[in-house]
C-alpha cells in the first residue's frame, strides 16, 4: 500500500494529522505534510484508510 497527498487540494482541515500523526505532520501554516515515502507500514494501513475517508477535500489517495 502506497499513500499520496496532493498539497494543491489540501485546505488545512488537519483531519489526517489528528487521526494519524504517524503518517502526517502539519506545517507552520497548518497544511499537512506527508511523513512516509513509498510503502505504508502494515500496522498503519487502517490509519491510512482513515485519512483518505476523512479528508473533506479528497487530497489523499491510496494505491496498491
Amino acid at each position: 500500500m502506497k499513500i499520496s497527498y496532493n498539497r494543491e487540494l489540501c485546505q488545512g482541515h488537519n483531519r489526517c494529522y489528528m487521526l494519524a500523526p504517524e503518517l502526517f505532520d502539519v506545517d507552520d501554516e497548518g497544511y499537512a505534510v506527508l511523513k512516509v515515502e513509498g510503502e505504508v507500514p502494515a500496522e498503519l494501513h487502517d490509519k491510512a484508510q482513515l485519512c483518505v475517508d476523512n479528508c473533506p477535500e479528497y487530497a489523499i489517495e491510496l494505491t496498491d
Partner: peptide, 20 residues
C-alpha cells in the same frame, strides 16, 4: 463514524480559519 468527510468548517479556500 469512520468515514466522515463533513464540511462543517466549509470547503475550499475559505475553510474556517479557526477550525482548530
Amino acid at each position: 463514524r469512520q468515514k466522515n468527510r463533513h464540511g462543517a468548517f466549509g470547503l475550499g479556500i475559505h475553510r474556517c480559519l479557526g477550525s482548530n
